[in-house]
């Protein structure tokens, strides 16, 4: 097994090292070719994680602390299925269906970012006014389910109201307004779409790891806090979360590793333009996508080939470091839980 891991690393290093040492590479060319790709990779991962982390952590917290055992044992396989969805399919839907659609409904889509959280809070406020019977029926522990139709309603309402608002606030087209007022260029396939799609793909694995960390916290800690009168949320924030923080950190690291290496989604949803900007509305080119597109055509041994292998080596090193770090953190954490739980 170690052999297999080493084999990949050794192969990549062996291919690249002689060239690096022998001065085949022109440093300027490395900078020219690799910097935009590295930039794009990090940018894509950043936007994906911006989308995936809140969603995954929220879901993990909810299912570890509020859901009933029964519901949780249904929830986990469902999200596992989400993880299993092939990247090509997500990439296809994101690149060819979602991207043009968001372009047409830009205002509504952006408004969703605001409407959905507020809508959930509104639901909470309404819930507190409900009679007790209803409240028990629509309990918080089942909120993950009964909020789904509510969110659907919100999405529908947002998109039917958005054109009017757009006309009122942005002279009819948010896209033109962005271009005119803020100088932001909107590309159909952009970092926002990539972030959304890749966040969707990465979210289940972050969720699974974070949920493991949260539900692994010895229950006597939480029970103690609740016995002292803390609400479940206070328990979580003051007791469970600090205990599980390293595990959650590890989950984020592994998620980042995934996002950095994901190829098909980026390839299909990003436009593959080597731009260096942080704007969510412009495309990018990532290392993984660059390798997938160019390597089959590169002549073995040529400079372009070696550059791409170098990119692969960087990817490998990055994910290797991130994963090792996460794995070490996780095994430390497991030992800590055992200690907290009173085991020798």
């Amino acid at each position: 097994m170690i052999v297999a891991v080493l084999a990949i690393g050794v192969f990549l290093v062996l291919e690249v090292l002689p060239a690096l040492l022998g001065g085949v590479f022109d440093p300027a060319r490395i900078r020219l070719e690799l910097t935009p790709m590295a930039w794009g990779t990090l940018k894509a991962a950043l936007w994906a994680m911006l989308f995936a982390i809140p969603l995954a952590l929220g879901a993990a917290i909810h299912s570890a602390l509020f859901m009933s055992q029964r519901l949780r044992s249904r929830m986990k396989p469902t999200l596992e299925m989400m993880e299993a969805l092939p990247g090509v399919v997500i990439g296809f839907v994101a690149g060819l269906v979602l991207a043009p659609w968001v372009e047409r409904h830009l205002a509504g889509s952006l408004a969703l970012l605001l409407v959905l959280p507020l809508g959930v809070l509104l639901a909470a406020a309404i819930w507190r006014r409900l009679p007790a019977v209803w409240r028990r029926h629509f309990s918080l522990s089942r909120a993950g389910l009964w909020l789904v139709p509510w969110l659907m309603l919100l999405v529908f309402a947002t998109f039917s109201l958005a054109p009017g608002l757009e006309a009122l606030l942005f002279d009819g087209s948010l896209r033109n307004w962005l271009d005119r007022e803020l100088g932001l260029d909107y590309a159909t396939r952009n970092a926002m779409i990539v972030g959304l799609a890749m966040g969707f793909a990465v979210m289940p694995s972050v969720y699974a790891l974070a949920e493991d960390a949260l539900s692994g916290v010895p229950s006597r800690l939480g029970e103690g806090a609740q016995a002292l009168g803390a609400t479940r949320w206070q328990t979580l924030w003051r007791v469970v979360l600090p205990a599980a923080a390293p595990g959650i950190f590890a989950a984020m690291m592994i998620g980042t590793g995934r996002a950095v290496g994901e190829t098909m989604i980026v390839l299909m949803a990003s436009g593959n333009t080597a731009l260096m900007s942080l704007s969510p509305f412009e495309g990018m080119r990532t290392m993984a996508a660059g390798i997938a597109v160019e390597l089959p055509e590169a002549v073995p041994g040529s400079e372009a080939y070696l550059l791409l292998i170098l990119a692969a080596l960087l990817l490998f090193l990055f994910t290797f470091l991130v994963n090792t770090l996460a794995e070490v953190v996780r095994s430390r954490l497991r030992r800590r839980y055992r200690w907290l739980d009173g085991a020798p």
Binding site: L55, L57, G58, T78, L121, L145, L147, R232
Partner: peptide, 18 residues
């Protein structure tokens, strides 16, 4: 009352399912 954050957490489950 569990506070707004607990509801947002529930909302994120609902959103992923959606």
């Amino acid at each position: 009352s569990e506070g707004p954050w607990a509801w947002l957490a529930a909302g994120s489950v609902a959103l992923s399912l959606l």
